[in-house]
């Protein structure tokens, strides 16, 4: 076959790939939404006075962070049916990728939460605020801005990891490119286009995140 870029073929498959891009973005968005919430739950669980809970969550996070996402995706997708719980590819994929990134985000939050000065806690105690109010109204709002940089990086990270969902049949970019490749025996165009689409989304996003982060920092008088 050799190297010959076929433009006609390119225009033919581009709409399909664009459509798949939407699915990729959706997968990244859903997964990230799960991770943002669950990550905070994990981070807070490690700050409770119950040491058993703290230890278990800590080990769980370490476990998730040191094992491959792709294996976790397979695990979630295939283990359910063995016990009579059938999950669709989308559901299983979102659980796996959301859980994986929640472990990473919990570490980012942890850094932010630890960075809140002790005086803030003491002031809340002095004002007789409940622990819940203290976290919700005082501590978390201050913990988020320093965590934004890390959160942004993982948003790009989750986007780049969505191709792994193709292995369980989520119809995102990689899955579509594979399908095009195996039906037409042309791999040059689909895989190259997928690479370009990823670059075209992740580079500007990363740049935007930097600008946004800068702005937040300036607004809070950190810079």
């Amino acid at each position: 076959m050799g190297f010959n870029w076929n433009w006609e073929f390119t225009w033919e498959i581009l709409p399909k790939l664009m459509h798949a891009t939407l699915n990729t973005l959706m997968a990244a968005g859903f997964g990230y939404a799960i991770a943002v919430v669950l990550g905070m739950v994990f981070a807070l669980a490690q700050r409770t006075p119950y040491w058993v809970l703290t230890k278990v969550v800590r080990e769980f996070i370490e476990f998730i962070r040191s094992t491959p996402l792709i294996l976790q995706i397979f695990f979630v997708y295939y283990v359910g049916p063995q016990f009579g719980l059938k999950l669709g590819p989308w559901t299983a994929g979102m659980i796996a990728i959301g859980l994986h990134y929640s472990a990473y985000l919990s570490e980012v939050y942890r850094g932010g939460l630890d960075a809140v000065p002790k005086g803030q806690w003491e002031a809340c105690t002095a004002l007789n605020m409940s622990t819940r109010d203290t976290y919700w109204r005082i501590v978390i709002p201050q913990a988020i801005p320093p965590a934004l940089a890390g959160m942004g990086n993982y948003l790009v990270g989750i986007f780049k990891d969505t191709p792994m969902l193709s292995v369980i049949g989520v119809a995102e970019l990689m899955h579509t490119a594979n399908a095009i490749g195996s039906s037409s025996y042309r791999y040059l165009e689909p895989y190259t286009l997928v690479g370009i689409i990823f670059l075209a989304i992740s580079l500007p996003t990363a740049a935007l995140i930097r600008v946004f982060e800068d702005r937040v920092r300036r607004k809070l008088g950190l810079k």
């Binding site: 990689m174 791999y187 895989y191 690479g195 670059l199 992740s202 990363a206």
Partner: peptide, 17 residues
């Protein structure tokens, strides 16, 4: 900026071209 999986497939399936 791109996924490792994309790079892997590219190296394995496209480089031979």
């Amino acid at each position: 900026g791109t996924s490792l999986l994309v790079q892997l497939y590219w190296i394995f399936f496209v480089l031979p071209l």
